[in-house]
Each structure stands twice: as structure tokens, then as C-alpha cells.
Design a protein around this nucleic acid. Sequence first.
DNA 1: CTGTTAGCGCCTTCAA
DNA 2: TTGAAGGCGCTAACAG
Lengths: 334, 334
Amino acid sequence: MKKKNVTISDIAAEAGVSKATVSRVISDSPKVKAELKARIQQIMKDHSYIPNHLAQSLAGSPRKTVGIVIDELTNFFFIEVADGFDQIISQADYCMQISSSKWNAEKEVKLVQHLISNRVDGIVLAPVSEESESLEMLKSSGIPFILINVIPTQKEIAYVSCDNYQGGKLAADFFNKLNRPSNILITGFSHQSLSLRINGFKDNFNRCDKLIHYENISTYEQGYEMASVLVVRNGLSDTKTALFVTNDNVAIGIITRLLELGISIPEQVSVIGYDDIKISSFCRVPLTTVSQGIKDIGKIAAMELLEMIQAPERPKPKHKIEPQLIVRQSAILD
Amino acid sequence: MKKKNVTISDIAAEAGVSKATVSRVISDSPKVKAELKARIQQIMKDHSYIPNHLAQSLAGSPRKTVGIVIDELTNFFFIEVADGFDQIISQADYCMQISSSKWNAEKEVKLVQHLISNRVDGIVLAPVSEESESLEMLKSSGIPFILINVIPTQKEIAYVSCDNYQGGKLAADFFNKLNRPSNILITGFSHQSLSLRINGFKDNFNRCDKLIHYENISTYEQGYEMASVLVVRNGLSDTKTALFVTNDNVAIGIITRLLELGISIPEQVSVIGYDDIKISSFCRVPLTTVSQGIKDIGKIAAMELLEMIQAPERPKPKHKIEPQLIVRQSAILD
DNA sequence: CTGTTAGCGCCTTCAA
DNA sequence: TTGAAGGCGCTAACAG
């Protein structure tokens, strides 16, 4: 005997009016006599009636909902982007739904499909790959969408992304000036944003022949552990070294461990990170890092998405955010 | 001339069959001739047809969606809970939607209402207050729900929460043994979980008369800044002090700053945190903290919620998780 | 195996 | 200012 959901008919019956009238009360239409309206509202309240939004949407009323699919929940980069996004979107009285693909292309497709089939008003996607299957689905769905953290290979797709190549170049320029005998590059999962950073770095660093490159280091913990390995394998205690770590989380993990091992930063080992997540400026050795204005990414994406929802036919907005090297303490020029 | 969404009728027409048949193909029913099925699937693919999930749900097919409302996105506690929750929930092939109330009761109500009106199958809520308005809505909605990070005052409400009073007591016991001349308590926003920790602490710490209490410190940054104040105002450099900080994020911020100021931890200042977020074990001075098994909270909530969705009539599950003091380095007994 | 007929809960003309 | 009727896209019995 599960409690049946109360519907518009129920409350219409109880009020002795038609469903249409109740519907008008729901949408706060001005053309219902005030007294009647009040009475109906009371009845709705008494029954804790909440309109079925699925039915409302099916029948044509606005969803007021947008979805955002990120790659990873436990990564401050994405969380900060989502947070910035939420700030704008909720001001406009939209609801935001986050979900995480966990860097899994299949899961991403599933989530995007779910969003589309739920007919949300707009979608923000941080795609696992720049040639994600999701893109075709998104395009043919007709739902406005924006990509983040990637520059789409196809034209006519909206995006907000850092100029990652340029970011890599900034780090390389700094490395060139730093001019350390030993130089190490530490990167994460394979992803367009990463390849560009790597290319930007390698194309501009003038001693790539001796560059050591470690891949697939993506988390704070992995960085922390990696640091010990680095010390042993690459003689960090003996040779003055520079580290370019393409993810702040990892960089902070590395620094934390290096300090524990008594290695001075930036004197003995200089570290440049990437992202400029919030804690980078607060950690033990404030991080010199390539900033991509994280909060902005979320906010810009939100504003543009809102625009696209209003006016879907406009040309697709494309934001390539200029990165900036923030010099703090983990790597400085003398 | 916006592209009209393709519907089940469209593809039925094109295939020259009835909507019912297409519907059967959608739900992968076995009783459609293989050949026909293949042909219809092809047509669906050609049109990038994605069924309208709103209509499906309205007509009775399962939503396969659950919602989780947390208080704060940029807080590892909630993110880790959500991540654990997601792990279980997605194995069961459900979609999870996260949203954040930002510690705002009104926004919480709005989000919960949104979830209910979207007729999700289940809801997890970290309520801003233990007497949240949301509870009534949730109860009368008939949708299974579980509260986290709070012990509801009403009976018959499912929850998964740490025994926060006990957590406070654990810290107090440790403080008693530590027996420092100066003792400071640093807490965050007003919330049941916090009051209990405070009570548990105060009821069991045997020198409360001299206890100094700072409130409303909730983030890493605030902790970082607070530390400088503490040093000046409470003479941390002169008097051996113990700090109980009811949030790891804050504790780490404080420690970071204290180290910068040349204060030794745990010798000069001992710090006990609360939550045992992931980075607590990896930070510069691994944190002694009260663990509430964060990942477990999410996972247990997920498993129970799934059960509740299957069998709504069963007694409501209630999990009071026993906290545990994890002694690492930031506070140790000699 | 496939088609027909009803709704699901709500909104939206169009009349009254 | 209110009501009646049709339809949104899909599923679920029943028939055939």
C-alpha cells in the first residue's frame, strides 16, 4: 500500500476546480482570482504537493536545469570550475547537476546520453578525449553545449579552455632562464590539454635532449610517492634540478615529500606546477605555477551557456584563455 | 527553424511499424524479430535518436537516477563522500547527480524540491540543519532518502553519520593525556555535527575553564590566516599548546602557516584535526585526526539507499559510525 | 511477434 | 476568470 503520489487532478478535485486552474496557480498565472488561488495553494500545501517536473517539461514548461560532466571529482581543478559555474548558473535560477566520468570514455558517453535524454537546457562537458563520441550525440541533440579543458578539433563547437601550448611555453621559457643542470618533466594521463602543454614545453625548452620525462602521475599521492623515487633515481640531492609538473595536485605532493626528505625548495629543486588551484598559494612552499584562471573557466562557461540557451543560433563562443606564469616561491630566478 | 527533436513516432513511421514495436526495441525486449530489431536500431542510429527519458519515466519506466545534496563543493569531506557514493551507485547502473547547498537552507530546500519534482529514485542529503524544512518534503514525497553527517532528531529517518560526540571525546581524552599548559579549540560554522564534537570535547576535557575557543573558521585559507593570529594572541611560540581543530582542511591550513613561522609541530604546538580526509596522511606533518571513515559514509549510504529503493517498507537503516583517533605526527604522546 | 488503445501528469489553446 | 479537450513522448496491457 505505497502512498500514491498526489497529482494535479487530486488537488483539482479537492478544490472543486479544473486541472487547468490548478495549473495556472502552479505557474503563478495572474489570471486566477486571488481568493481562489490562495485556497488552492493552501490545499497544495496541505498535501505537500510538488508538481511532477517530468510531466511539466514534457508538456512544454522550461527545465531550468543544466548538466556538467567533469573528469574527476577528487581533483580541485574540476571542482573549482564546477563551483564557479554553479555561482553564475544558480543566480539565473537554474539547477546544476554534476557528474563525473572518471576519465572513462564509456562512462562519459553514458552520462552525456543521460543528460540529453533528460532534456536539460544546456550541457558543459570536460571530455576525456577531444574526439569523444559524445560530441556527435551532443551536436545532433540540439542542446546547447560547451566544452571545457579542451580545444575541439571540429569547427562550430563552443569551448572555454586554456591555451595549453602557451602554458607549456611559459614553463619552458622559465626553465631556460633557470638553466639547471638537471631537468625533469612530470605529466599525467594522456589528454589533449596535456599533450599541448608537453609540446609547448618541448618546442621551447632548449635542452630537451637531456630532459627526463615521467608520465601517468596524476594525483597528490602519486606525486608524494614519486618524489622519493626521483631523489634516488635522479639524484635530486646532488644535482640542482628543475621540475615541471603539469598538475598542481601532483606538484604539491612532490614538494611535500621533498621537504620531508630535507631537500630545499627552490634552492636545490625548483618546481613549477600547472593550474593554480586555490591551495597552491597557501601551501608550505607557495607554488610557482601556470595559472589558467580556473574560476573564470567555470564562470565564463556558465555565462556563455546561458546565452546559448537564449539564442541558440548565434555563432559558437570560443574562449582560449591566456595562461600566466605566477612566480611564487617553489621556483624563482635569482 | 530549430531542428525538431526526433521522437518515437518518427522512427516508427520511417520503419513502417508501430510505436509499440519501437518501444520494445528501446527496452531491448526479446520478443521482436531479430531482423526487424536490427533494422529499427539502424534507423535510430541514423537519426541519433535518444529516447526522451522524461516521457519514459512518466509512462512508468524506471528513472535509475539518484540525487545527492551536499553542503559544499570545495570541501574534501563532501567530495570524498560523494565519490564513494558514486562508486557504488554507478555499479548498480544508476546515475548520480550532485548539487551543493552552500550551507544555505533555502537553497537546500530548492535543490531537494527539484530532486523530488524530478522524481528521482532516491536522495542523499547532508542537511544544513538537523531540523531542515527539507525533511518534511522528503518524508511526504515517498522517495527513499538518507541523511548524512547528521543524526536526525526525528525517529524513522535513515542516516549515516559519525558519532560526533564520541569524536569530540576522543580528542578530549588525548588532550588530557597531552596535558599542555595552553589549549585551544577551533571550530567552524554552526552545525549539529559540530555542536556534538564540541560537547563531546568539553564534557570530557578536564581543564575547560582555561580552554580558548575560536569559532567560524571553516576553510584552509581561514586556517592559514588564523594561525598568525594565534601566534600573536595566544603566544604559541612561548607556551606549549594543543589545538583541536574540528576540520582537517582548517587544521592543515594552520599547520602550514605555523611551520612557515618556524613553530615546531608537534613539539611546540600539537594539532588534532577531524575528518581524516585523504591528504591528511600525506601532508607535511601527517595529521593526527579523528577519522570518521569518509569513504565508508558514501558507500554505506549508497548501499542502503539502493536497498531502500528495492524495499521501501523496511525499517530505516541507521548507521552511527564509530570515530577513531588516528595518531600520526601532528600530535603525539611522548 | 506486432499493432491498438489507454493512460502517465501537466500545460495550452480555445470556448464559455 | 474558469473549464474542456488535445497533446507532449513513451510504456503497458490486451488483442490478434
